[in-house]
């Protein structure tokens, strides 16, 4: 469903991403790994429309989307999380989920003022959807807390729930396990697999935690200093000499 072809992104003199290609099929978890500063987040930013790529093509469901504004890309059905959690921290947990569903709501001002049946109906449905996902990620007891008061791991889960209420086809997660303890990482592992299995969402994942990546990915792309280094199944990547060298050299 997503096809990134020869993507390049230049910041002034720095070629942060150089001819990177990634593709994600339906019902698949694909990971991007690479050392710090390799350009992984930049790839995400290009796909999600935050940066306008300086070269290459991005196709989503067969439609070219490079250079489109970010909010339009998101509406096509691919949403992302951020490396540094970005919640609406002064809003409550449930409100975070309502904001995300604004496109499912009746945003007609008059309908809202008059509380038309359609308006109420949709408002109720989105509250139900929010409740469902809060239960799913284990945050239902904190529903009325301000999001900024959640623990770090909870914030990460809320961010994923916030993506899921938009009912995306492709979920892009930027280092979702960063800052989580081993127990939380394991929960996250199960959550991501379940998103794919039970909700038929494809996942594009950036992650440093190797056991997580190797465990759940269908395919892995490795980039190093902006350039593609290798791609294949976890097994192939584990045995790839270039990858081993790059990672050992890094460490």
């Amino acid at each position: 469903m997503l096809e990134v072809q020869n993507l390049s992104m230049r910041f002034g003199g720095l070629l942060a991403v150089d001819q990177v290609s990634v593709d994600v099929q339906e019902h698949e978890i694909v990971s991007i790994i690479g050392p710090n500063g390799a350009g992984k987040t930049t790839v995400f930013n290009c796909i999600s429309g935050f940066y306008k790529p300086t070269g290459g093509k991005i196709l989503f469901q067969g439609q070219e989307i490079q250079g489109k504004p970010d909010y339009k890309i998101s509406r096509l059905g691919m949403v992302r999380t951020f490396q540094h959690v970005r919640l609406f921290s002064k809003m409550t947990v449930v409100e975070n989920l309502l904001v995300a569903q604004h496109r499912h709501l009746n945003t007609n001002l008059l309908a809202g003022l008059l509380k038309t049946p359609d308006y109420r109906e949709r408002e109720k449905k989105s509250l139900e959807r929010a409740r469902y996902w809060l239960e799913r990620v284990g945050l239902i007891d904190m529903a009325n807390w301000e999001a900024g008061n959640l623990a770090y791991g909870q914030q990460r889960r809320l961010e994923i729930a916030r993506c899921m209420v938009t009912e995306p086809q492709l979920l892009m997660l930027d280092e979702p396990a960063a800052g989580l303890n081993p127990a939380e990482t394991k929960e996250l592992d199960q959550l991501i697999v379940s998103l794919k299995e039970d909700y038929n969402v494809s996942v594009l994942l950036i992650e440093h935690d190797m056991s997580l990546v190797m465990g759940i990915s269908d395919r892995i792309n490795v980039i190093n200093q902006g350039r593609p280094l290798a791609s294949g199944t976890p097994e192939e990547i584990r045995q790839n000499d270039d990858v081993i060298k790059a990672y050992l050299g890094e460490a």
Binding site: K72, R75, V79, R86, S89, H102, R103
Partner: peptide
């Protein structure tokens, strides 16, 4: 509160 997050959720 967070324009980037809002836009990433499809808000214009």
């Amino acid at each position: 509160e967070d324009e980037i997050a809002a836009r990433s959720l499809g808000m214009s």
